[in-house]
């Protein structure tokens, strides 16, 4: 089922136009231009320090929290430039959820972790509604069965894989349109990784997912499209199948075969 998703005509969700990122004087990303399809998994691969995580953080303006970081170019989500002056990052981030490399549940109860987003945004008008959102999110993240009896325990008491799924549940609780995942499995063991990957396959039915990964196998397993970054440049972008079977560029070839990395 993995790449059979919907191969029909796909709508463009995110469109990156000439995006460059500077840290003080250093250019970290160089004129990145490509489109990300709606309700598909797009994976960003490349050697460490190639700028793939930086690009991911451009998509929900997480780079704003770093003072020295400057972004040039345009990122369009549904044809709206998210770097336009009238766009509020708060609103944007409610639409674009994010899951981090290391599971980072808040030091609160499992319930409060998931309820955090809806409650700061005022999405639930009553306690029941909030509870409803939390339970649905946990179910969607495939965590509900494991934690239903310990919702008041602290989120940090869960295992690594469960924590990461809790973070996913937390992200989908505000019903975002896009979920960004920054190497979500790098801190997890193989079994937990497999569960999260299955979850991604499930989530892609409803969300657009962009995932940064270090593991080419993972990119091949979960994504429909793949972008290969190297030294701050987008080298190649295309369907995952194509990238992995017939790469157009030598650098891509070298990376996939393990010569650079």
């Amino acid at each position: 089922m993995k790449k059979s998703g919907n191969l029909m005509s796909s709508k463009i969700k995110i469109s990156s136009k000439d995006v460059s990122v500077f840290y003080s004087q250093n250019k970290a990303l160089n004129n990145i231009t490509f489109d990300i399809d709606e309700k598909k998994v797009t994976s960003l691969i490349g050697p460490s320090g190639c700028g793939k995580s930086t690009f991911l953080r451009c998509l929900n303006r997480m780079n704003d929290t770093i003072d020295i970081c400057k972004v040039k170019g345009k990122v369009l989500i549904d044809n709206e430039d998210i770097y336009a002056p009238n766009v509020d990052p708060v609103l944007l981030r409610a639409r674009v959820g994010m899951v981090f490399q290391k599971p980072n549940p808040f030091p609160k109860s499992i319930f409060d972790n998931v309820a955090y987003g809806p409650s700061i945004h005022g999405l639930a008008s009553s306690k029941d509604e909030l509870e409803n959102i939390v339970l649905t999110s946990l179910q969607r993240a495939g965590l509900y069965k494991e934690v239903k009896n310990r919702l008041s325990e602290t989120g940090t008491s869960l295992s690594g894989g469960q924590q990461q799924r809790l973070c996913i549940a937390r992200a989908i609780a505000v019903s975002p349109e896009i979920i960004l995942m920054d190497e979500p499995c790098s801190a997890l063991d193989p079994i937990a990784t497999a569960i999260v990957e299955e979850l991604i396959d499930e989530l892609v039915k409803n969300y657009t997912i962009v995932i940064v990964t270090h593991s080419m196998q993972q990119a091949a397993r979960v994504s429909q499209n793949t972008a290969f970054f190297h030294m701050g440049n987008l080298i190649e972008f295309g369907s995952t199948q194509k990238i992995f079977s017939t790469p157009q560029f030598k650098q891509t070839q070298d990376y996939i075969t393990g010569k650079i990395g």
Partner: peptide
């Protein structure tokens, strides 16, 4: 840890 702050910002918290 910064990761907790990032987690919260990513949810759209001010």
């Amino acid at each position: 840890p910064q990761s907790l702050r990032d987690g919260s910002y990513a949810m759209g918290a001010t």
